[in-house]
């Protein structure tokens, strides 16, 4: 999966999660459609410690492979760019 498509998939997922969780600010739906690839998804309120599992499972299901913990710092899971790296690792 190329980077653009991956970002689109994850952004769609984040939009859905934000809407379900009623993320504070209520602007998150609009925000999720325009996330910078290095934006911190936690700081934006798009994901939190209790919903990050859903994002990880989403990526695992998307790639069909479990993520390889040894390859990544935890901060990798905070940005779209990092998540793409994770997905590529899981893809291999």
């Amino acid at each position: 999966m190329d980077r653009k498509q991956f970002y689109r998939e994850v952004t769609g997922f984040l939009t859905k999660v934000s809407a379900e969780n009623g993320t504070p600010g209520s602007g998150t739906e609009a925000l999720a459609t325009d996330i910078g690839e290095d934006s911190n998804l936690f700081d934006l309120g798009l994901i939190n410690s209790f919903t990050v599992i859903r994002m990880i499972v989403f990526i695992e299901d998307l790639t069909g492979a479990q993520i390889d913990l040894a390859e990544h710092d935890l901060e990798t899971f905070y940005t779209l760019r990092g998540l793409y790296t994770v997905a590529n690792g899981a893809d291999q």
Binding site: S49, I56, L74
Partner: peptide, 18 residues
């Protein structure tokens, strides 16, 4: 077993933020 990696990663993220 197929969710162990995801669960531990999420727990590690939670721990880091806690």
């Amino acid at each position: 077993q197929h969710r162990v990696s995801a669960a531990i990663t999420a727990a590690a993220v939670l721990r880091q933020r806690e």
